[in-house]
Design a protein around this nucleic acid. Structure first.
Length: 261
DNA sequence: ATGGCGAGAGGATCTCGA
């Protein structure tokens, strides 16, 4: 089973690139983030024409996630509120960032973690709170299923080797101690980084800033991840970053990460 | 040290991303 995660930065702008990639890379589930489109306007037929099922959860202009699956998924749900009580979720579901479904006994969770903007901003506080609620959400899912694959754009580089230039990282959003601690607290549920089963070296990134020629310089960050429970970690046979789409003209600033179980 | 680029909304120039 192959699962891919890709923040496409607008599914409509990237539609040709995404469908082409899907034809070249026969993944079972493609997890999209930042689709940036309401459900009524999601380009479903481009995917159904290729034989894929679409499960979408979008909003106007911002955020939005989708599962593109070769086989029908079961137990599909969107939002924290589908699993957790309103008293815990509060208003977090106003931003569409969570979708999940089950394929062959594996629960796939597709996340678009908040960016956080800047330290000391309200959005940074929001991000840390969101990660606390994420832990509750995943804990609830783990009570239903022991095989969990949590992937997406986490907007966090967990280790210094996940950043091209880690100096000053303590002041940089996506790399602060508080963000890393919040993510490690999530992973303490029993989730491990599938990519690090196979690759220990730095210099492997999944996002490069559009500005300053960051991709040419490989000045990137590894912030798109596949975190899996021990059974799936054992089953994983590869986890790779496909930089091919990032070379295209008018690319997303992220590139796909693929895990094979 | 700062800003760089790109997308959406809307119809000039904002906000937002990371």
């Amino acid at each position: 089973m192959k699962i891919a995660t890709w923040n496409v930065n607008s599914v409509r702008t990237r539609l040709v690139q995404v469908t082409h990639w899907l034809q070249e890379n026969q993944v079972d589930v493609l997890c999209l983030q930042e689709t940036k489109v309401v459900d009524e306007s999601f380009p479903r037929s481009s995917f159904t024409d290729l034989g894929y099922e679409t499960y979408i959860y979008g909003q106007k202009s911002y955020n939005g996630v989708a599962l593109i699956s070769r086989s029908p998924l079961s137990e599909v749900s969107m939002s924290f509120g589908a699993i957790l009580p309103e008293s815990i979720v509060g208003d977090l579901d106003e931003q569409k960032r969570v979708i999940t479904g089950v394929l062959d006994g594996v629960r796939v969770v597709n996340l678009y973690v908040p960016n956080g903007s800047a330290i000391d901003s309200d959005k940074y506080i929001y991000k840390l709170h969101w990660l606390k609620v994420l832990r509750e959400y995943l804990q609830a899912l783990l009570q239903q299923s022991s095989s969990l694959l949590v992937c997406g754009d986490f907007n966090i580089a967990l280790e210094d080797i996940d950043i091209h230039d880690p100096k000053n990282r303590s002041k940089q959003v996506m790399a602060t101690d508080a963000e890393r601690e919040a993510l490690r607290n999530v992973l303490s549920l029993g989730l491990s980084d599938a990519f690090r089963k196979f690759t220990q070296e730095g210099g492997n990134f999944s996002w490069w800033d559009y500005r300053t020629g960051a991709f040419r310089r490989n000045a990137g960050w590894r912030i798109d991840h596949h975190y899996v429970t021990p059974d799936l970690y054992e089953q994983a046979v590869s986890c790779t970053i496909d930089t091919t789409p990032r070379h295209l003209t008018q690319p997303s600033d992220h590139t796909p990460v693929v895990v094979e179980l």
